[in-house]
Measured scan of single mutants.
Amino acid sequence: MMAYMNPGPHYSVNALALSGPSVDLMHQAVPYPSAPRKQRRERTTFTRSQLEELEALFAKTQYPDVYAREEVALKINLPESRVQVWFKNRRAKCRQQRQQQKQQQQPPGGQAKARPAKRKAGTSPRPSTDVCPDPLGISDSYSPPLPGPSGSPTTAVATVSIWSPASESPLPEAQRAGLVASGPSLTSAPYAMTYAPASAFCSSPSAYGSPSSYFSGLDPYLSPMVPQLGGPALSPLSGPSVGPSLAQSPTSLSGQSYGAYSPVDSLEFKDPTGTWKFTYNPMDPLDYKDQSAWKFQIL
């Protein structure tokens, strides 16, 4: 009977010793046993002879290597770790002494450095960015050149030099007046198309007034536009458009034309069986010896 009264063996659950049927240790109110408190290391007290050895090595170098620390530790009968900690504390003490010396050398008012006064946003004049500046400075420094007289040679050079070769001289006033084509001369031969040399188009003023001019072949195509416009036809070669000034309004060009419109200028042929003959000019830059190549039959 006494065997049943004795408590059973101890069981360990999660490293906790349980005594038989008792489960009081598993209750929430019972805390787990805490780790033992780490003991504080005792402070090391250095003797005068030990301090002399350490100070002598510190005077040589503030960062001794492990071999120098072990050698000193053997002399003063201390572990190497204590020597390492002593050098660490000695360097910190040396830095603190240097900072105190710097503070003593500075004057009393030198510690508080005078800061520059901050400028207020409204006091300083700042350039306004509302208006974009002129990058080319046209509004201040540029002045347009004065327009020359209508009959000045410089204007003629600016007008005619675009179309004339570089080897030719500017046309005088008398020749510029001949550039304007007359109405009857352009409409006299509506079906004849003559190819003149390129030099005649640039230099010869008579080429624009003769039936064999460069633009005589364009007349049949330009004249039928007159009834559609409801007024006189516009002429690209009329009046002052080739003269001194090219800047004319469309209203000033509306009254200039080749001449009176005639039914002869239409595109319809009077004789459907007729042929169109292209007159060959020996001055043509295209060297075609066979003139029969310039004739064709309209079917």
Rank of each mutant, 00 (worst) to 15 (best):
L51I: 09
D265F: 12
V160L: 09
K102V: 04
Y11E: 00
S216E: 02
L16V: 08
Q104C: 08
A117D: 01
P125A: 08
S257Q: 09
T159E: 02
T123L: 06
G122E: 01
A156D: 01
Q100A: 08
A181I: 12
N77A: 06
Y261A: 03
R95C: 15
T45N: 09
A174W: 12
P9A: 02
G178E: 03
S262V: 11
S143P: 03
Y221K: 05
A198R: 06
Y258E: 01
Q50W: 15
C94N: 06
D284I: 14
L25T: 01
G259R: 13
E173T: 11
Q62C: 05
A114N: 04
Y221R: 07
Q248P: 01
S216I: 13
G109T: 02
E268G: 09
S241P: 05
F87T: 14
P64S: 14
S206C: 10
D287P: 12
D284Q: 13
G230R: 14
P145K: 08
V85A: 13
G255R: 12
S161P: 00
S292P: 08
S212A: 03
V226R: 09
Q291V: 12
P108R: 11
K60M: 09
A59R: 10
Q106E: 04
G151R: 09
L299I: 15
P116K: 10
Y195L: 11
R41W: 14
S143H: 05
K270P: 01
I162L: 01
P108T: 07
P197V: 14
S141Q: 10
E268S: 11
T273R: 09
P135G: 08
G243P: 04
S262A: 09
D290S: 13
S241I: 12
S210P: 09
S141C: 04
N89P: 13
Y258L: 03
S241R: 12
G274S: 03
Y63D: 15
Y142G: 07
E80H: 10
R69Q: 14
V264T: 01
P236A: 13
C132G: 06
M225F: 11
R95D: 11
P285C: 05
T155H: 11
T275I: 07
A158F: 13
M283S: 03
S204Q: 04
E80A: 09
P240C: 08
Q50V: 12
G217P: 11
S213N: 04
Y258K: 03
I298P: 00
L186K: 07
Q28L: 15
P232K: 14
P227L: 15
N6R: 12
V72W: 13
A73I: 15
S12R: 11
S124M: 07
V83Q: 13
S164V: 15
S249K: 08
D140M: 04
W86M: 12
L218S: 00
Q291A: 10
Q28F: 15
P21W: 13
Y32M: 04
G178T: 11
Y11N: 01
A35Y: 10
